[in-house]
Amino acid sequence: MTQSVRAGVRVEPMIRRTMGFHDGWLVEGEFRGSRNRATRYHAYEQNADLPLTGLRAYGNAWALLEDALRVKAKGAQFRMLSASEKVVVQMAEEAILLRKYGDRPTHYHLRRFTQWDEFADHLARTGYASLVRMFEKAFSNDDLKVLRNGQAPDGAQQLTLGLLEHCKNMEFSQVAMTKCCFTSPNERPKNELVKGVYVAMTRVENDLWMPGDALDRLSDQLGNLDDYSDD
């Protein structure tokens, strides 16, 4: 289907440019935005500038965890997508075990780390020094439970948080895409990353929020990725 039923004509050029990063066809034919909606585009600098409604998409589970803690502290009515919550909880639990007991992680994003210091250095270098401090201050499974229990009931949330790969088959009046959507680490094939960005962008109806240099960031990131295949 080339005619969008959600995203309007104003974001059509950005969506087409994103599709152009894919090696094959994401849709057959030229993408066209919905003629029934304008869909306003908003460039932003900081996550604090983003609305506390709609969908907020992430390319990195650590960014989602960090933001979930932040929006909970603000008293926002938020909820994580169940599949994304599962990933975040598993990774956080394994980070806790690595720090406390030296247990080697099993999650495929973490299993290369055998020592806490090595993992902490990686987190700090990739922009998550605040999470290093949090884990080293004895962030525990009980704290994770408090975060999970602090979510709004399913269907009652004003803000939905989710990883790119879990945003399919949804629609929201507002969609905000965090910076890590466009600078995700070398954890997935190039085409999968592009498809995830495209899917999240096309969940929007009225307002799309992205960093002002989002697609330039994506282009640079794809150029830096190893030549992964989708096999």
Rank of each mutant, 00 (worst) to 15 (best):
S4F: 10
R6F: 13
R10W: 05
P13D: 03
P13L: 05
P13Y: 06
M19H: 10
F21H: 11
D23L: 09
D23K: 14
G24L: 13
G24E: 15
G24M: 12
L26M: 15
L26Q: 08
V27Q: 14
V27Y: 10
V27T: 14
E30T: 13
R32V: 13
R32E: 11
R35H: 08
A38K: 01
R40A: 10
Y44Q: 02
A48Q: 12
A48Y: 03
P51Q: 06
T53I: 06
A57Y: 06
G59T: 05
N60K: 06
N60L: 11
A61L: 09
A61K: 00
E66I: 04
A73I: 01
G75Y: 08
Q77W: 01
Q77N: 04
S84K: 01
V87R: 08
A92K: 02
E94H: 08
L97D: 08
L97F: 02
R99D: 00
K100T: 10
Y101E: 12
D103L: 03
D103C: 00
T106Q: 12
H107V: 06
Y108I: 13
L110A: 11
R112W: 06
F113K: 07
T114D: 12
E118K: 12
R125D: 14
G127Y: 01
G127M: 02
G127Q: 01
Y128D: 02
Y128G: 00
L131W: 03
R133G: 14
N141F: 00
V146R: 10
L147T: 05
R148G: 07
A152Q: 08
D154E: 14
G155C: 09
A156Y: 13
A156Q: 15
Q157F: 10
L159N: 06
T160Y: 06
T160G: 00
L163C: 07
L164P: 09
H166E: 05
K168A: 04
K168T: 01
M170Y: 01
M177D: 10
C180E: 14
C180N: 15
C181K: 07
T183M: 06
P185C: 12
N186M: 13
N186C: 13
R188H: 08
P189K: 09
N191V: 09
K195C: 02
V197G: 09
V199E: 03
A200M: 12
M201Y: 14
R203D: 05
V204K: 01
V204H: 05
E205G: 00
N206R: 14
N206Y: 08
D207M: 06
L208A: 09
L208N: 08
W209V: 07
M210I: 13
P211Q: 00
D213V: 01
D213F: 01
A214E: 00
D216Y: 10
L218Y: 03
S219D: 11
D220V: 14
G223M: 03
N224E: 08
D227S: 13
D227R: 14
